[in-house]
Computed example of a mutant assay.
Amino acid sequence: MNLSILFSEQYRKIARDGLWDNNVVLTQNLALCPLLAVTGTATNGLGMGLATMVVMVASNAAVSVSRHLIPSEIRIPIFVLLIAALVTLVDIFLNAWMHELHKVLGLFIPLIVTNCVILGRAEAFASKQPVMPSMWDGLMMGVGFTAAMVVLGAMREISSAGTLFANASVLLGESFRFLETTLIPEYKGFLLMALPPGGFIMLGFMVALKRLFDRKAVAKSTEPSMIDVIVLEEGA
């Protein structure tokens, strides 16, 4: 992809929507089932997020390529079939090459098929846009989702066990061993944070912080600049 295209206004807006303004988790509050179930550690959140991102990019590309060939009356079932085929390939790959991670994520990998984010982006964006913007949209939505999964998993893991990216080398491979960190030695743990209620609590904090940042950004953008103040005073 030409780098100049990536810096165009359209691509910047797509990136901003996926990473922040229209973030899958923090703004749309979607995909909460895998989010709360597998983010007991940052490692699990990273694995699930990457798997979902791959499916999202590939499904957006497939839908965009075939958008003129799919009758509008049956587009939703066909989108689901495309997504299911891609999820099956990801499931087989994880089972073959990252078996320990596959065992941890378990049923939630096939359930990517039912993730309304993937189908929603296919319907709302990829079915109406060319291939490159569609793939970029899938990538940015996937990165935003993965980032939220990792941050939530990290917050829960630190508060529940005092570690960060525990068992990364076992689940993701030896190349990820450098991520494994013990932040609080001899920490006895806080069990609630490792359970789904802890996920709800931490997610609530994350959503609240995002809205606080958004409000401050809006307030700052509406404040008159020094130049505007000087112009108004001179006009008066």
Results as ranks from 00 to 15, higher is better:
37 A>H: 05
46 L>K: 15
100 E>W: 07
83 I>D: 10
71 P>Y: 01
2 N>K: 04
111 L>N: 11
9 E>G: 13
58 A>R: 13
116 C>A: 02
10 Q>M: 14
97 W>N: 07
102 H>L: 01
96 A>L: 11
85 A>D: 12
20 W>I: 01
49 G>Q: 11
50 L>M: 07
83 I>P: 02
59 S>T: 15
27 T>D: 12
52 T>H: 05
39 T>L: 05
69 L>I: 04
16 R>E: 09
104 V>E: 08
112 I>Y: 11
44 N>G: 11
66 S>I: 07
12 R>V: 04
34 P>M: 07
52 T>Q: 15
100 E>N: 02
71 P>G: 03
8 S>Q: 15
94 L>S: 13
93 F>E: 08
21 D>C: 14
105 L>W: 07
9 E>Q: 08
5 I>H: 07
65 V>M: 14
24 V>D: 03
75 R>V: 02
89 L>M: 15
106 G>N: 06
60 N>K: 08
40 G>D: 11
89 L>I: 13
103 K>S: 15
62 A>W: 03
51 A>I: 05
90 V>I: 10
25 V>N: 13
102 H>I: 02
88 T>S: 08
66 S>W: 04
59 S>P: 08
81 L>R: 04
14 I>L: 09
119 L>N: 11
36 L>A: 10
41 T>M: 13
18 G>D: 03
65 V>F: 07
76 I>S: 05
33 C>P: 11
87 V>M: 14
34 P>H: 03
117 V>Q: 09
10 Q>V: 13
43 T>H: 13
110 P>T: 02
6 L>S: 06
48 M>L: 12
4 S>Y: 14
45 G>V: 00
21 D>M: 15
4 S>C: 03
